[in-house]
Design a protein around this nucleic acid. Structure first.
Length: 350
DNA sequence: CCTCAATGCCTTTCAGGCCTTGAGGT
């Protein structure tokens, strides 16, 4: 099997000292044949890497890299929901802007010099998920950033960002006063850098719900997202935005703000939770649709470089009986989505 | 037991699908 001397993981090189790694999993043959290029992984909502004994991989370890030790270990790409992807090559795909973590000056410039873009007509909470400008910001980060900036999520993005531009151009302040202002009151774009930095600075996998310690640390780090007492609304993309205080002028009408019950964190200051029905009617997947025939799956596997098939499969059957998902079978080649997808989404928006 | 929501992103795009798990309601 082909070897890969190093893995390029979300901008970091991980050099294993165990004499090389061997692929197992759904990497395309044609891609592997190109040689030892960098593999860039994008973690989906639930994906992570875990190093473990090769003989006892965790569930949902869909891709494994074995060491040559004895006994061998396996670096496992654990991804229960199979939302993660990987691709060869290191560059951002063209539609993504500069990274909020590693390219902060360019990121800032890219936003402030393009404020006429229609992307900024939207509420700031929606604009923050636009990876063309906010490469790396995901749902929980936008909540944490706006909360710390004390900006209503449904304030118009351009209004918020134009104000930053004016503050930047205010030359009446001395340099030291500007620096102090910056330190004491980081603006929205600065927070887009510093808040994610807090997350990656922790030398733990904060996103692994199966690791109770790390996950508790992550939950504890959150100040707004999923926090009892905070309000939430669905944005126009049907994603939940968590916030405190007023939602802002562009808030969707006819939607009641929900507040989280105090299950996770005791919050004596939290007002009585407003009990409303679930605002979202977003359909859940899987359970309503019967599994696709194996033949179809094999067809898709056979042409990994062919034209990409759309993922939308039309309206779901309403009355289809729920199907029990099988326990994670090790060679379950249901659909080689990970390798067959276009090489996009290299940056984990977190 | 059932429904919904979850750290994203894709396209047959502007909403539903991809997928599994766990919480919460009945």
């Amino acid at each position: 099997m082909p070897e890969c001397p190093e893995l390029h993981l979300a901008g970091r090189y991980i050099n294993e000292t165990c004499g090389g790694l061997v692929f197992e999993g759904g990497v395309q043959r044609s891609a592997v044949g190109r040689g030892p290029e960098a593999l860039v992984f994008r973690f989906g909502m639930s994906g992570s890497f875990r190093l473990c004994e090769a003989s006892s991989p965790p569930r949902h370890a869909h891709l494994r890299f074995f060491t040559r030790e004895s006994p061998p270990r396996a670096l496992c790409f654990v991804d229960p929901r199979r939302f993660g992807t990987w691709r060869l090559g290191e560059a951002w795909q063209p539609d993504r802007g500069p990274c909020v973590l590693l390219e902060y000056p360019a990121f800032r410039e890219n936003v402030l010099s393009n404020l006429e873009d229609a992307a900024f007509d939207k509420p700031v909470c929606e604009a923050l998920l636009n990876q063309k400008y906010f490469n790396g910001i995901g749902n929980y980060l936008r909540a944490e950033i706006l909360y710390r900036a004390k900006i209503p999520p449904f304030e118009k993005a351009r209004t918020v960002l134009e104000a930053l531009k004016h503050r930047e151009q205010n030359s009446s302040l001395t340099l030291s006063k500007k620096l102090k202002l910056k330190r004491d009151n980081p603006d929205l774009l600065e927070l887009c850098h510093t808040v994610p930095m807090e997350v990656v600075a922790v030398d733990k996998n904060l996103f692994d719900p199966s690791d109770s310690d790390n996950y508790a640390a992550f939950k504890n780090w959150l100040q707004c997202y999923l926090v009892p007492g905070m309000s939430s609304l669905r944005d126009r993309n049907n994603r939940t935005i968590w916030f405190q205080g007023e939602p802002g002028p562009m808030a969707p009408k006819g939607q009641k703000s929900r507040k989280k019950h105090a299950h996770l964190k005791a919050d004596p200051e939290a007002p009585t939770p407003m009990v409303t029905t679930r605002a979202s009617k977003r359909r859940s997947g899987g359970a309503e649709e019967p599994p696709k025939p194996a033949v179809k799956e094999e067809e898709e596997k056979a042409v990994p470089d062919g034209p990409r098939k759309g993922r939308a499969r039309g309206k779901k059957k309403v009355a289809a009986p729920p199907t029990l998902s099988e326990p994670d079978a090790p060679v379950r080649a249901k659909r080689n989505r990970t390798s067959a997808r276009r090489g996009r989404g290299a940056a984990p928006a977190v």
